[in-house]
């Protein structure tokens, strides 16, 4: 036997396969005239609590569907079930030991169960994680990041990928501000350092602060 070493130029994007599937999802969304939000945050930042308020406030004004991504359990979907909104749960643990993010293929697998033509806005609640979801397009129009002020001022600098990719940041748990050593000005400076001028709304799922502004932002785009 004789072995020859050969070199082959490839020049293929590692995420090209995902991006192609994301584009296919995007075409389905466009066809159904859906405005699609990829909602991302660390675990426990308050995505589901904000969604509860969102579904409550927008009832009868805009038709929202939800795709819930979680490594395991249907707890989040169960919390939202009382709104009688089209909702589908995608668990990522069918993958390699439970993926830490949703990718385009996982989202596609959930779409069959959603009546896309009967909704205006699809909110994809990604797996709670500050790093991984930012790498994977799923076919969204915008990325909305929920950030809780309990996470500290420096997070934009430590996790720039996600903060850079956000189109809107919901700065959540504002009701806790009096109880924390949290410098809001410093956080906003750090946010502007990685994503200059990105849209931001100060919110609290506990007091309802900012929920109207966020819902208006969403309805403006969902009813367009």
């Amino acid at each position: 036997m004789h072995r020859t070493a050969v070199k082959k130029v490839v020049l293929e994007g590692v995420l090209d396969a995902n991006d192609a599937l994301a584009e296919a999802n995007r075409q389905r969304f466009d066809h159904a005239n859906n405005f699609v939000v990829n909602m991302m945050s660390s675990p426990g930042a308050g995505k589901t609590a904000l969604l509860e308020h969102t579904l409550d406030r927008t009832l009868g004004k805009v038709r929202i569907g939800v795709l819930e991504g979680d490594v395991q359990t249907t707890l989040d979907a169960d919390r939202l079930a009382r709104f009688h909104t089209p909702i589908v749960q995608v668990n990522t643990d069918a993958g390699f030991g439970g993926e830490c993010h949703l990718d385009a293929n996982m989202v596609r697998s959930g779409l069959a169960e959603l009546p896309l033509h009967d909704i205006d806005v699809l909110i994809i609640e990604n797996v709670g994680n500050l790093v991984c979801p930012a790498e994977f397009k799923v076919g969204e129009d915008v990325r909305v990041m929920v950030y809780a002020i309990t996470e500290g001022e420096e997070k934009p600098l430590k996790y720039p990928l996600m903060f850079r990719s956000a189109d809107l940041v919901l700065i959540n748990k504002m009701d806790l501000l009096p109880h924390l050593h949290f410098d809001l000005e410093l956080f906003l400076r750090n946010l502007d350092a990685v994503n200059p001028g990105v849209g931001r709304i100060l919110t609290s799922a506990a007091t309802g602060q900012g929920i109207d502004e966020w819902c208006s932002w969403l309805m403006e785009r969902g009813n367009a």
């Binding site: 072995r3 020859t4 050969v6 070199k7 293929e12 994007g13 590692v14 200059p196």
Partner: peptide, 25 residues
């Protein structure tokens, strides 16, 4: 100013492969 167009630093791709080809004698 911060008005920058990123030109490098967002790469994530397979550039090339090195392989062995077997041929018998």
């Amino acid at each position: 100013e911060s008005n920058l167009q990123i030109t490098r630093g967002e790469e994530l791709y397979v550039e090339s492969l090195e392989m062995e080809e077997q041929q018998n004698n």
